[in-house]
């Protein structure tokens, strides 16, 4: 109660010192108050500015931004929409309105706003990157791929732009395009293990298996701490029925990253295919220890126990797998539709 008195006094003084008819002065004062972390006063001043001049753009935009920054997306929207009626070609307002819509889970509206922003500034590469991600989340894969191609043209020296474009085209099912971009990436960044990996991955996607295996091996050799090429090399060999060849690659991936569950599962599958059941059992037990909520080690364990004639344990593991699957339905990783990047952390 007592602490509120000085704040109230400051607000009263500021408000009464402004020219009540000058929206610019009111808006400037609001800006000042916001900077000084006096949000209530700032909001009041912007509102007064709008009372004086309902179409005063800075006040409309700033009130929108004010609410956005406080994560009050719903009240931000009308101010930003009004601001655009005053100044339809303002890039920032379109961008911000899109961000508010996105936060309100109005993806279509967000993307429409951002498309308008992009129409005003076609070189806004950061916005393009945001749109690529949002198109992907909305499963607008073709649009994501087009935006990614555009972003790559704007920033041709950015490896990340290559990677985004590869992923967007992969999601769109445009594997030859993804491969072509990956090929350009390895030409530009021949020592990049990540670029090499993407090239190998997409060579495999279009069926050029022998070349893919070579690129994956090269990717693994370029970065001794990069586990993904080893895993994928092993996975590809395993898919081809070359289980014995797959095992060293998968073991290498696991030596780099011991908690790499997909690699351990692939190793277990290779061992099962070779009827090396005790070793498979050991790997799967380790997988369960490291990743107890993952259903797949339990499913494979049920198969190993079943093949060993232990139906009781097979059934127990199967039930555990089914329970975990229900509890965490998105934990499984589709190898061919892998998320991007599949391994944690940025990699050059």
């Amino acid at each position: 109660m007592y602490r509120a008195v000085p704040l109230l006094l400051a607000l009263t003084l500021t408000v009464f010192c402004q020219d009540p008819a000058d929206p610019a002065a009111l808006s400037d004062a609001a800006q000042e108050a916001a900077r000084a972390n006096r949000p209530a006063e700032a909001e009041e001043l912007w509102k007064r500015a709008l009372k004086a001049a309902p179409g005063y753009f800075p006040a409309l935009f700033n009130l929108g931004y004010f609410h956005y920054s406080r994560r009050e997306f719903e009240p931000a929207v009308p101010y930003l929409e009004r601001a655009l009626r005053v100044r339809a070609t303002d890039f920032n307002t379109h961008y911000l309105l899109g961000a508010c819509y996105q936060s309100l889970e109005r993806r279509e509206d967000a993307l429409a706003s951002w498309r308008r922003a992009l129409g005003i500034n076609p070189r806004a590469s950061k916005l393009l990157q945001i749109m690529i991600v949002e198109y992907g989340r909305g499963r607008y894969f073709t649009e994501a791929a087009a935006a990614a191609t555009q972003a790559l043209e704007l920033t041709p020296d950015d490896l990340n732009a290559f990677l985004l474009a590869i992923k967007a085209n992969q999601d769109a099912g445009l594997y030859p395009v993804a491969l072509e971009i990956a090929q350009r990436a390895v030409t530009k960044y021949p020592q990049s293990a990540r670029a090499r990996f993407e090239f190998g991955f997409h060579l495999q996607k279009v069926g050029r298996i022998d070349e893919a295996l070579g690129e994956l091996k090269l990717a693994g050799s370029l970065d001794p701490n990069y586990e993904e090429p080893h895993y994928f090399l092993g996975e590809t060999l395993q898919q081809l029925g070359r289980s014995a060849e797959a095992i060293p690659s998968l073991q290498r991936a696991l030596a780099i990253r011991t908690d790499y569950t997909p690699a351990r599962l692939a190793l277990a599958r290779a061992l099962i295919a070779l009827k090396r059941l005790p070793e498979a059992l050991s790997e799967l037990t380790e997988a369960v220890r490291r990743d107890p909520s993952h259903p797949q080690p339990h499913l494979l364990l049920s198969q190993v126990y079943f093949r060993l004639g232990d139906e009781a344990n097979a059934r127990r593991e199967r039930e555990t797998s089914l329970r975990l699957r229900r509890e965490n339905p998105t934990i499984l990783e589709a190898v061919q539709g892998r998320q991007f990047p599949a391994s944690p952390g940025p990699r050059k």
Partner: peptide
């Protein structure tokens, strides 16, 4: 089905 390997895809889907 799960034990015999005919319930899910190879990757457990």
């Amino acid at each position: 089905g799960a034990e015999a390997g005919v319930a899910f895809s190879e990757h457990g889907f």
